[in-house]
Amino acid sequence: MHMNVAPHLLTEDRSEYERILDDALRNAYAHPDLAEIGKRLTAGQLRTMALNATALITAAAAVEYDHFVKIREEVRSPSGTSVMDAVLTADGDGASGGPGAGLVAIVTVLAPVLAGPAALIFLLVGAVLKVLAPTLTFADTLLTAGWFFAAVAAAGLFCAAVGLLLTALRNRSTEVAASDPPHREADDELFRAREAWRRALLERGILPFLRDALAAAGPAVPPAVPPPRTDRIPKIGYSGPNFSSPNEGSAGTRPRYASPDFSSPDFTGPEFGASERRPD
């Protein structure tokens, strides 16, 4: 399929687009203008945005992609002929052949395709009728027709095989010995076209999109920090008792305690007692 523009990727190239995008996000540190990845937008968010904008990003490298697809198609089918073409050219090569040869080739190709299913149907129906009604002559007619179409299909397959063999032998005889250099040259051209598309997609598509997405996100906003908790016990409508230390309050109201006045008993020594002892 040849495209003048590439508004979107082919299915087989979407994985390559995702790989280039992942490499760009993984190596974002190499680009100073992508240093805000992870602060304003994460790599996952940018990847999702880029996948949603695939058509917009790939349009920046549409010319390179168109050239790459064209070269790839030429490499895949450089001058290849299909099986139909091989059979059509087996009976005549233009000089010795003609309309008759082309007609014979067409019949040779179509005979197995048409005669095979017909033979199967006739043989199956004829066999069923033969089992159900052995004396029915129509069953024998169907079986005969089925074997006829089977023979036609076999003959067509044989002719097609012979034509393919003759074509292969003729192409081998005219094969150029040094056919590898053109193939290598085509592979090199395909490689250069692929690399040009990858480079254009990265430099003109993916990186500008990532820069624009980061710029549109605005400055990084620090996460909100909740205020510290000053009281872990919630107030439920009452307050605790007002406890105060014994030293608080007025000094006049403080009770004062005095120690009892203990004195020794009225007791004198022996000498004092003897001097004042009265005579009996």
Results as ranks from 00 to 15, higher is better:
R14T: 05
V125N: 03
S244M: 13
F158A: 14
L120Q: 07
M49S: 14
R232P: 07
S173P: 05
P241Q: 02
D266H: 03
A101I: 07
P117K: 11
G156Y: 00
L88Q: 00
H2A: 06
F272I: 08
M84S: 12
N27D: 13
E36I: 14
A151P: 02
L202F: 02
P117A: 14
E74I: 05
G240W: 01
P112A: 01
E16T: 09
W197M: 15
V63P: 03
A95W: 01
L120T: 12
T167H: 13
S275W: 11
S263W: 10
G218K: 08
R19L: 13
F158W: 14
P270V: 04
G100W: 08
R192T: 06
V109H: 04
A153K: 00
P117C: 11
H2N: 11
P182W: 05
A215N: 04
A28C: 15
S275K: 08
L120S: 03
R277H: 12
L34I: 08
P227I: 07
A224V: 15
A150W: 04
A53Y: 00
N171S: 10
A177M: 15
V128R: 15
R198S: 06
Y65P: 00
T11R: 10
Y29N: 14
R47I: 10
A101F: 08
T268N: 03
F272A: 08
L41K: 09
V176G: 07
V113C: 04
E12S: 07
R198E: 07
A115V: 02
T167N: 11
I106Y: 08
L88C: 00
E189Q: 14
M1S: 15
M1I: 13
L164M: 04
L142P: 00
A60K: 05
G249A: 13
L103M: 13
T81G: 08
L201V: 09
F149D: 01
A150G: 04
D66S: 14
G102M: 08
S259E: 14
G126T: 01
A139G: 05
G94N: 13
L202V: 11
T48K: 14
G252Y: 10
L46M: 06
A60L: 00
F267H: 11
G44Q: 12
L9W: 03
P270C: 03
P246H: 02
R229M: 08
A217K: 01
E16I: 14
L202Q: 12
L88I: 01
I106W: 07
V125P: 00
L169P: 01
D188M: 11
G97Q: 06
V107A: 15
P99V: 10
A150I: 03
F191L: 13
A60R: 03
L25E: 01
K70E: 05
E189L: 11
L165E: 05
T137Q: 10
A30K: 11
R26L: 12
R211T: 01
E203V: 13
D33T: 13
A61E: 00
D212P: 04
T167E: 08
P270E: 05
L9E: 03
L51T: 06
L25F: 03
T89N: 09
A274P: 03
P208D: 12
E276H: 09
V63L: 10
H67N: 13
L56S: 07
P228G: 12
I37P: 00
A86I: 03
P99E: 10
T54V: 04
I57G: 00
P7C: 06
T144G: 06
A101H: 13
A55L: 06
